[in-house]
């Protein structure tokens, strides 16, 4: 019996240790290193010397209006993802699944199409659309009859996230649509037939049958959307030009990049950047835990 236990332990360790080692080196070490970095004044360009400064970087961050502005923008992006991309993706998937439109494959391809393009290409495309006398401005001039009309929402901090939110929905909704469609295709069609026989109409089938059955998928998608939104950098960076517009649209990853990589007036900028990145991870985890909690409360979980 003892020999058997030893063999099992050896097998267990043999299987777990390689994976654990890779995880520790690739995932855990950078996280711990980043946490340590954020408690120091370390700047790799100063020859490796450092001092422990406690929570100074976090205190600085909490007093920095740029942080709160970036956080607000990031929460808008999270909201757009969770309450925009996911519901729209779900609804579109349902329309295709139930064959409520003709040429479903065409619409499916069109909605998913942005996922085939480079984010930088998409960002540049939207930037061009919104530029002075660009296509959107021309449309406004045509509709308003004012030849000087311009699309200036990107210039103002209060409105910059509207066009960005629109672009985010355009780009990522297709991904969630495909995820939901794939899961809908696994559903037992007899359930829908039974509901129809019981007299359920289309909205009732959607809200009382499909949505509860796919609540687990919704939860996973929400987690992905939150994590993706908080570390999202490329699309917003590409859509904005360095200066006022990028400052208006700054989200936490861009704030972190600007601080750590560009702000030479702050000699502790690498440590400050680490503190910002740690806060991104912390907020991301908190929101994911919250969404899981809400999911459980709503009795989330696929039931078949």
């Amino acid at each position: 019996m003892k020999k058997k236990d030893n063999q099992a332990l050896a097998a267990y360790l043999g299987l777990v240790i390689p994976g654990l080692a890779v995880y520790l080196v690739i995932v855990a070490y950078p996280i711990l290193y980043s946490l340590w970095l954020s408690l120091t004044d370390f700047n790799p360009n100063r020859g490796g010397s450092w001092s422990f400064v406690g929570l100074l970087q976090y205190r600085t961050m909490l007093r920095d209006p740029a942080f709160w502005h970036a956080l607000k923008n990031n929460l808008v992006v999270v909201a757009v993802s969770v309450f925009g991309q996911i519901p729209i993706g779900f609804a579109l998937a349902y329309i295709l699944f139930r064959k409520l439109v003709r040429a479903g494959i065409f619409y499916q391809s069109m909605v998913f199409f942005p996922n085939f393009l480079s984010t930088i290409v998409i960002g540049t495309l939207w930037k061009r659309l919104f530029q002075a006398d660009g296509p959107v401005a021309r449309l406004l001039q045509l509709l308003s009859g004012n030849p000087n009309a311009q699309f200036d929402l990107m210039l103002r901090a209060e409105t910059v996230m509207y066009p960005i939110g629109f672009a985010l929905i355009w780009m990522y909704t297709g991904l969630y649509m495909v995820v939901f469609l794939a899961n809908m295709q696994k559903l037992d069609l007899n359930l829908i037939e039974a509901a129809k026989i019981d007299g359920a109409n289309e909205p009732q089938i959607f809200f009382r049958l499909i949505v509860p059955l796919l609540s687990g998928t919704v939860l996973v998608s929400t987690t992905l959307a939150i994590a993706g939104s908080l570390r999202g950098f490329d699309l917003i960076f590409a859509m904005t030009t360095q200066g006022l517009v990028r400052m208006n649209a700054e989200v936490l990853p861009i704030f972190m990049y600007r601080t750590a990589f560009q702000d030479y007036s702050n000699p502790m900028r690498f440590a400050y950047g680490s503190a910002i990145s740690n806060v991104i991870v912390f907020i991301s985890m908190a929101l994911i835990l919250l969404s899981n909690y809400v999911g459980r409360k709503l009795r989330a979980g696929e039931e078949h």
């Binding site: 200036d152 210039l155 006022l244 600007r258 560009q262 702000d263 030479y264 007036s265």
Partner: peptide, 17 residues
């Protein structure tokens, strides 16, 4: 350089708009 320069540049854009 850094934040003062970024703020000045964005500030001039704010003045212009």
């Amino acid at each position: 350089s850094g934040a003062p320069n970024d703020t000045l540049n964005a500030g001039m854009q704010k003045i212009a708009s």
